[in-house]
Nucleic acid binder design. Structure first.
Lengths: 236, 236
DNA sequence: CCTACCGATCGGTAGG
DNA sequence: CCTACCGATCGGTAGG
């Protein structure tokens, strides 16, 4: 890219605003869109996508602004600085994850209760694993991978807030894994087993291709089944 | 950091060379050190450490130069550009990994042969897993994590060369996993099982702390044992 | 391998 | 949220 401007001046933005252009430009915003937090949400979504794709350090705030249909300075109206935007992506991701994990467990529990029984530890694990694959690989799945792979860029204070949310998330897993260990369905120290299991699941963000589900690729349901077969011993 | 120089001029380097200083400066190099590829190796080691610690995009070539005891322009005498340095770290890491994996397998095979027997698939997996923990977490273990977590920064050509080496590395695992699957010691499609297993192992680079081995932390041997317990069914 | 430097980009800001 | 801009840093290079 060659700049024809004097070296002292920035190229103002990728596409300078030509007052006379018609249509085709940034879409006119209705009052609705402008009022609520849509613009902030747009920024978060764009940032999550780019941070996942290129990494935090390799993504410029200009890239994010452009992806959200803004000019280069505008993200700083919504976020104090670049790393605050990253922290917001992670917190948003973890809060969504917590909500969806709780909803998945509640739904499965209710279904079992309707049959007059309770969930086995094995069934709980299946629900948790399936839900985690969805968080990692399903639609709107940029937030969690960013949290997993970019936390070193946070400040200490931001990191401990994200860690707190992550601990709450993992709290649901602990009793399930302990029960499976106690019944002999899962071997190895449960603390280490949890870390190895999370590794197996989280790594899928690096290789899974949702586009291949039809052509020889496994669905998220099949993936969860395979993971459970691999990690659990046959019930006795 | 405040610069007192005119804005047109860079601060030449962190510590400008004062001709009169004695001792304490960059160590005088002997002819030996200057002749062979030591300086290039120093750069690779420094780059691996910093890329692992801060990530590729967040590490400047100046950081790397300083860590190797050079001035800011000198890395480009050894490497064409920054990403070529990253590619060299990864190739070096993969080549070492291949050598060490082969050596570990050969040593285990020889030991078994001395007892007049051959290795079981289970024993092979134990050797491979233990060796991978060493590559990821042992001494000089910066190269492989960089390869695992920074490959998106490579050009397509560089990426396919690293992928080729990685495929050779994984080629050793395939027959072992197939044998374990055939004997019923490992469940789930072997292709997916391999990805899940690698995930479990590779993720350890994110949480394992070698300093805690004495105080409640597991050694690499213990870790390998736990992983095998977790992933394999009892032998029949 | 160092010196001295360039052009580009980047995070961020004042003022509207 | 845009305009116009600043100061700093960064990858990289010519010449020795």
């Amino acid at each position: 890219m060659v700049s024809f401007m004097s070296p002292a001046a920035d190229t103002p933005d990728a596409t300078p605003p030509s007052p006379g252009r018609r249509g085709r430009g940034r879409p006119r915003k209705t009052a609705d869109e402008r009022d609520d937090g849509n613009r902030r949400q747009d920024l978060l979504r764009a940032a999550a996508r780019l941070f996942r794709l290129k990494g935090f350090a390799a993504t410029s705030t200009r890239d994010i602004a452009a992806a959200a249909g803004m000019r280069s300075g505008s993200p700083f109206y919504h976020f104090e600085n670049k790393v605050a935007l990253l922290a917001a992506v992670m917190q948003e991701g973890m809060e969504r994850a917590l909500v969806r994990q709780q909803a998945a467990m509640d739904a499965a529990s209710a279904a079992a209760r309707a049959q007059g029984r309770t969930l086995s530890a094995r069934e709980c694990l299946r629900v948790l694993v399936r839900n985690q694959f969805d968080l990692l690989l399903g639609p709107e799945s940029d937030f969690i991978p960013v949290m997993l792979y970019e936390w070193r860029s946070l400040s200490d204070a931001q990191r401990s807030e994200v860690t707190r949310l992550k601990d709450v998330y993992e709290l649901v897993w602990a009793p399930v894994l302990h029960a499976l260990h106690a019944s002999g369905e899962m071997a190895g120290d449960p603390g280490v087993a949890r870390l190895l299991l999370f590794g197996a699941l989280n790594w899928s963000a690096q290789w899974y291709d949702p586009a291949r589900v039809g052509q020889g690729g496994y669905s998220l349901d099949e993936l969860a089944d395979i993971a459970l077969q691999l990690f659990l011993k046959p019930p006795s």
